[in-house]
Structures are given as C-alpha cells and as structure tokens.
Design a binder for these strands. Structure first.
Lengths: 258, 258
DNA sequence: GACGATTATGGAAGATATTGCAAGAAAAGA
DNA sequence: TCTTTTCTTGCAATATCTTCCATAATCGTC
C-alpha cells in the first residue's frame, strides 16, 4: 500500500473512533507500529490529528452538532461567543424557536434578559428555564432520542408545523455552497418545519462547520437570513456567503469582548 | 486505554452524575485509583472539574435538575417504597403514562428493568431516561409550568387525548369518599385525559393524602383500578376503600423490605 | 535492463513517560 | 482527642517514544 493511502486510511479511521491505539492502527492498515508512528507524525504536522501516548486522537472531533449539550465542552469558548452574539439579535418578548444542538443551547442561555417565549424540542434547553425565570418555554411533543435529549418523531414535526414564531435559532452539521446539511435524518424534517414556521432564520455554525458536509441535506442557503459564526471562521467562506446575500455575523472572541 | 480518552470518559461520566467517588471512576475506566487521581488533577487544571475529598465534582453543575424532584425529601422513604411497589405492578414492555409529581417520579425511577414505553408530561421523568437506557420516552407537548417542570396547556391535553396506553401512574392532592382531588386546576384536564387514555389506572398516594380534599375534583373512585400507598396509611380508610372494590396495595417500608 | 542513490520499512536499544503500590501526611468524622 | 479515610509523595515496574541501523523498495540515470 502507498504511504499516502495508508495515512488517509488512518485519518479516516480516526474520524470514526476519535481515539486509537498504535497497535489498533497498525493492524488496521497492515504495517508495523514504527510505520504508523511515522505516519502519525506526518498527519500531526498536517494538523488533523494529534499524537498521544499510546496512539492518536482527532484534533477536531466531528461535532456533528447534535450532542447532549451540557456534556459537550468542545469549542466551548466559540460557542459561548456565538451564543452572546446571536442572543443580541433577538428583540424583547419575541417568540423564538430554539433548535436542538449545543450551539442553540448556548444561545438560549443568553436569552433570559429578553424575556422571550422559547419554543423548543431540546430537553436541555427546556431544562434551562424550567425551574423558574421570566421565560415562557413551550416544549414540542415527541419521542426522546436517546443521549441527545432531542424530541423527535411525528409528534415533534406536527408541533412545529402548527406553530408560528418570530425567529428560529438553528444549527447544523456543515455548510457548503449547496446549502446546509445535518447528520441525523430524523431531525431534518423537524428542522424544516421549524424554518417554515418563522419569519427569520438564524443559523449558528462554528468555524469547523465550513466546507463540511453531513449526510442529509437540510436546506439551501436562500432559506437562511442570518449566519452567526466565530472569529476563526475562514474569511474566504464568509466573503463568499456575503456575496450571496447572507448577513454573516462574526462573534468576537471572549478575549476581545472583555 | 489512552490517557486522554480516559480523561474524556471521566469528564463525561462526571457530566452525568455531577459527583463521583474515586473508586467509582476507577472502576468505570478500568484503571487504578492512583491514575484516576492524576487524571483528575489534569482535568482540574483544565477547569471543567473540581477535586474533592474522596472524588470529584462538576464545576458547572448542570441546571437541569429540578428542585422539586430530586431534592424534595419529604416522605422520601415512603415515596421510594411506593415507587418500588408500584413499579412491581408493571409488566415488561408495557406502555405507561407517568403523571407529573414526586410520587410518580419515584415510580419511574424503578421502571428501568421493565423496559417500558413511558409517556409523560413531566420533565423530571423525561430527564430520568433522556441520556440513555432501554426505556423509550414519549414527551407530550406543552408549556412548562415554572418550578414544577410539568408540561401544561392545550398541547398537553391534546397529546394525551390522542394516545392510548396500558397503564397510567397517577398522583393527586387528596382522596375522600367522593373521589380524588388535586390542587392545580391546570393539571386536572390533563390528568383526566390520561385516565381516559389507558386500560388500567394506578393512583399513588402516600398516607398524608387520606381524607384530604384539594380545590379541584379530579375523578371519582370508580375510575381508579389500583391504589398504592405506604404502611402508615390509616387502616380504616384502606378497609373502606377495599370494601368499595378498589385494590389497595400497601408498600412495605424499606426496613421491612430489606 | 543494470546500477547507484534515495526513500521507506521494520526492528532494537536507550531514554522517557505512565502506571500502580506503599508509607507517611493531611483531612474528615466521631 | 482519636480513629478512619483520603491525599501526597517517592519508587519500582511496565509501557511507550525516540533514535539509530540494517534491509527492502523505489527512482533516476545510463
């Protein structure tokens, strides 16, 4: 096997498992451990992978966005910055649909001051303001998708199909010139209903999402009104999207914001 | 296992349980206690976790716990006894509607083994099995009633009106010869829909509820199939209800049950 | 096609890091 | 205050990493 092909396979394997031991990788590609070591140093310079004692780990674990929010600390600073910037776009007392996913969760954390009406299918978001607070929270029905705390299924789709709201705060697994994609097919239908239910669609996507494509198409770029991202977003992408008429907001990193 | 992967797993586990002992963590990741100690110091520097004597705890305690459910310790022993006894009435793989309130919550805690389908309008109950587990949870839609974490309103009523299930596990504010009453008018309509949706209605009422009357009537005694209470229930009431054809189950107190 | 040069590969030895254990120190509880 | 538990520290055993070298493969040139 060629060296490059081997490295590609190692990278792919790591994309799947996030952590891998040297023996595991060596066996997977059928070479000695020494060679795997060398491949890993190459990949590490490439930037996608980081070597650890005994193996390697993914540097940008594919966050495909729908992880149980409280648990996820990846790109936390960026997500908090996006949360603040996105919350600033909401007017007081608006009705806001909040999508499931970690980034919308962080937006919701900063919505308290606006005394909004929040409509969501995300249990973590619902729990945020369940105990008290000036925020009215409407929860869609649905079946809990294990581990993610998202309500899915016909009940959820139906709930959003019958609703109307001012703004939707959405997230996704990746954005390309063709549009936005997401990982879980189950969620797509719900998200599309959310988009149909509102006047204004705001997408929150951190910088790792640019140029990435998940399995299922969610919507075209024309459906998006505003895109909020963090300061590490690639500027060529930002400019390209602005040229296509999207309002792109770059959340200042917390150090800049004070 | 890799050091970093191990630390990630420890962090994830702590996200779930909020506090964990060293032994527990050591067993969970399969290394010695010493190694867990070292991992915890690393994580503490990382900032997500704080070490304590005997274990570690989360620095940002999750906000999605409810004052009402986990921390209401009044008649805790009785409620746990009722929970066990009532869960014993459920057959494997049944569909179970679980009412809001502390007592049904404790029943739900013991339902895991039965691999049931749980249908509920209670966020604490929903959160119980949100992260994983063999339990399918259906959440009704609705507006969150602050502090209690109950979903109320037309959406909730509608959800239960359209459903069918095997059993309903209900609670109430008081029971008299005229029937069962409850305090929140908002809940009555939902509870009545729950009762209509099932074959078998189980009411869980601790001993303080006998002879008490709340503001709103919920249902007559003829709607009740089984009543589960604790060992401190007044026997004259129990006999009176049994004479009227109700199956009354007295949960053994935990000391008797072992 | 043959030959030398360059590069890739697999293994080995010493260096380094990690792990688990044990003894003394510190802390919590009675 | 005393006992028990837990924490820290030092140490030995193990595992892993780096560096080096011999061999094998590939490439360029003739």
């Amino acid at each position: 096997m060629q060296a490059e092909e081997r490295q590609l396979r190692i990278a792919e394997h790591l994309q799947k498992v996030e952590f891998a031991a040297l023996d595991e990788l060596a066996q997977h590609v059928g070479v000695s451990v020494s060679t795997v070591r060398r491949d890993l140093t190459v990949l590490e310079i490439g930037g996608t992978i980081r070597r650890t004692h005994g193996g390697a780990r993914l540097i940008n674990p594919r966050t495909d966005e729908f992880v149980f929010s409280a648990r996820d600390t990846r790109q936390l600073a960026e997500k908090e910055a996006i949360g603040r910037a996105c919350a600033a776009l909401i007017q007081p007392h608006q009705s806001v649909i909040v999508d499931a996913g970690t980034t919308p969760y962080h937006v919701a954390r900063y919505l308290g001051d606006k005394k909004p009406q929040i409509i969501t299918n995300s249990l973590p978001v619902a729990n945020l303001y369940a105990s008290a607070g000036p925020v009215e929270v409407v929860v869609s029905g649905g079946v809990i998708y294990p581990r993610l705390g998202v309500l899915v299924g016909p009940l959820a789709v139906e709930s959003f199909s019958k609703m109307h709201a001012d703004v939707a705060i959405m997230s996704g697994g990746g954005i390309t010139a063709e549009g936005i994609t997401n990982s879980h097919g189950l969620l797509i239908e719900i998200q599309q209903a959310m988009i149909r239910a509102v006047q204004k669609v705001i997408f929150c996507l951190d910088h790792t999402k640019f140029g990435r494509q998940s399995v299922s198409p969610l919507c075209g770029l024309e459906a998006v009104d505003v895109l909020v991202t963090d300061s590490a977003a690639p500027m060529d992408w930002v400019n390209q999207l602005r040229a296509r008429g999207l309002e792109v907001i770059i959340a200042p990193s917390s150090s800049e914001a004070g």
